[in-house]
């Protein structure tokens, strides 16, 4: 066990953990952040997506040993911000949410994309979401949701 210090959703966090334990388990079991889902445990589905130092990563394959000193943002840290609300409501209004299990990861992937590229075209959106599997929607309405978030976000000046 080791003391691991990192910034979680804007606040300093110190946890005692084995450095090889998965960030996903620490977030869900130790810290109770269950917006982060386990869909595959092997970095293939994106349900556990979080931002690490602003970049989209799969928390199921991030060892805590790599988290020391890092800044981690989960959906819990994003959902009540203007940026998070914008994406969440755009997905909701586009009909992009069905079973909902992939959706938190899809919000994180959209956030990572829109920060880099606030006005993506369809191809760019599809590429940005390509590591997030969804079995319900066939992706069409998710893609539309990101487009809607981009349009509304621009009006609201979210990425300025």
């Amino acid at each position: 066990m080791q003391q691991i210090t990192f910034i979680l959703n804007g606040e300093k966090q110190v946890v005692s953990a084995d450095p090889s334990s998965r960030l996903l388990d620490i977030l869900r079991d130790t810290l109770g952040l269950t917006a982060v889902k386990e869909g595959c445990g092997e970095g293939e589905c994106g349900a556990c997506s979080v931002l690490k130092d602003g970049k989209l990563v799969n928390s199921c394959i991030v060892p805590m040993g790599s988290v020391d000193g890092a800044e981690i943002t989960t959906l819990e840290g994003l959902r009540d911000t203007a940026e998070g609300e914008n994406i969440i409501s755009a997905y909701a209004d586009s009909g992009a949410v069905q079973c909902g299990f992939c959706t938190p990861g899809m919000v994180m992937a959209a956030a990572a994309l829109l920060r880099e590229n606030p006005e993506p075209d369809e191809q760019e959106i599809r590429e940005a979401l390509s590591g997030n599997l969804c079995r319900c929607t066939g992706y069409n309405l998710l893609v539309k949701g990101v487009t809607l978030a981009s349009e509304r976000g621009k009006e609201k000046g979210i990425w300025q």
Partner: peptide, 21 residues
């Protein structure tokens, strides 16, 4: 005429609790 699904916000915001949650 479409409505916003009743479960959409809870799910998209990660508040919805699945069995493992």
């Amino acid at each position: 005429t479409p409505v916003r699904r009743l479960d959409a916000l809870d799910k998209a915001s990660g508040r919805a609790k699945y069995i493992a949650d």
